[in-house]
Design a protein around this nucleic acid. Structure first.
Lengths: 245, 245
DNA sequence: CGAGGGTTTGAAGTGCATCAAATAGTGTGG
DNA sequence: CCACACTATTTGATGCACTTCAAACCCTCG
């Protein structure tokens, strides 16, 4: 079946599974389902019993938690190629967050059970899992730091920088990967604050903004401003999940 | 040697090593050093090359990062029985934070290299490592949520609650585990804010405060106040690292 | 007893949130 | 291709929470 082939290739192309046993990939595949999600469609709920995990094929998925009173904290917004829900294995088989499609998306739903087996039996796989977990941990530590030490415009600047190839200097043009309201929530601020932060960068850092297209006059200048309140020195790419990992 | 015996027992009593190979414990032991740290003594520096990891035997160790400008973000304050520095394995062998003794402490310094080996060779051990990592991840997610959704008095209330056995109701007396300034930084607030937050809880929640001894009139009342802005329902013990884990 | 750090208190400032309203954009049916 | 409806984004005015700065207090320990 064509769709199965695609899933197979997608899995195999993923670092996590590139060195895992064929048996595992086959088992996952046999019980895989591809799901189309409408924008805002909810996929899993915080604390729900978890039997499946997910791989994003197209679109973006927002992970979040919310209180009884309705305020929500965005944990992460994941791009194509990323997994989520896999950590439920270590969480009494329940999801540690809710997940919804940030825009029309396609995800592959995979059974959790074979994962647990593979971890116990294939040290290489466990190691992969460990390093992906460690990468995530590092990222969260950084996020916590950003929230503590950077103000809104700096956080935004930092976010923009991570959308660029940070090795170049001159002017660079980027596109926001999803809408501004969502970027705002990803950065832990209100849309209004986001808008004002962007306005400030436009004024002070010579940014040109047109819709969701942004031209940064000089990366180094922006970095000097944003990274002043960060413990990591500037070229800090790869730390954050924006591309296929 | 007596000291070696103590270290051996300490290691073996630790969940992480209870099921690891004797070979590993022996290797770790052979190259172990016990260190006494004065209050504020720095043990490792962020980004330093890492060849060792540490187990806390007495005292408290503060993990933090700081910017060039001198502001610092406290990542965690670890109690007796906790490890740190082990994740350097997954971080190009460099520490992802700085660490200093929050008060006079004793730590055991252990070589990192045998750990890496054991992870590859002992699936059980890798699994332990994974679940400890997952626990940490969950904790960090919660921390991020707290910072986003709870105000200062609520965060403090939540912190106090986690120092109690949350199953009881009546009045409970607790002691702050380290000084107020440090608790403040752990909760991401200034000492002044901490002081005012405590004053507010004293007034609104019928807390009695005498130095670092605090009597909570009623746990449920405090929980209703603090946990309103949290996605986790009340008895939320075990989530946070305050006791031996 | 006196020095020094930890803690509290007061006064003032800052940054972000909130509320409200205007404006820009997007997709739809006609 | 246009007008409408709906949503996203911006802008202004105001409020609140936490920080900052300054000073007093207090507690411990030599």
């Amino acid at each position: 079946m064509a769709s199965t082939d695609i899933i197979f290739d997608t899995l195999r192309a993923t670092p996590l599974f590139e060195s895992s046993s064929d048996a595992l990939v086959r088992k996952l595949l046999k019980d895989s389902v591809s799901l189309k999600l409408a924008r805002r469609q909810i996929l899993v709920l915080h604390d729900d019993p978890a039997e499946r995990f997910f791989l994003i094929r197209t679109g973006w998925v927002k992970l979040f938690r919310e209180t009884l009173e309705g305020s929500e904290a965005v944990i992460d917004i994941l791009p194509v190629g990323h997994f989520f829900g896999d950590t439920a294995i270590f969480n009494d088989n329940s999801y540690p967050f809710s997940a919804e499609a940030a825009e029309p998306s396609e995800v592959i739903s995979l059974p959790l059970a074979p994962l647990a087996l593979e971890i116990e039996e294939n040290p290489k796989f466990a190691l992969k899992m460990l390093s992906s977990m460690a990468r995530y941990r590092k990222q969260q530590d950084l996020e916590l730091e950003h929230r503590a030490l950077q103000n809104a415009p700096q956080r935004l600047g930092c976010f923009l920088l991570r959308l660029t190839r940070q090795d170049q200097s001159g002017p660079v043009t980027i596109h926001l990967p999803y809408d501004k309201t969502l970027v705002a929530s990803r950065l832990g601020m209100k849309p209004e604050t986001f808008s004002r932060a962007l306005a400030k960068l436009r004024a002070d850092m010579a940014l040109k903004v047109k819709g969701s297209t942004i031209e940064i006059a000089d990366i180094q200048t922006l970095a000097a401003y944003s990274c002043a309140a960060c413990s990591t020195e500037f070229p800090c790419k790869d730390i954050v999940a924006t591309k296929f990992a």
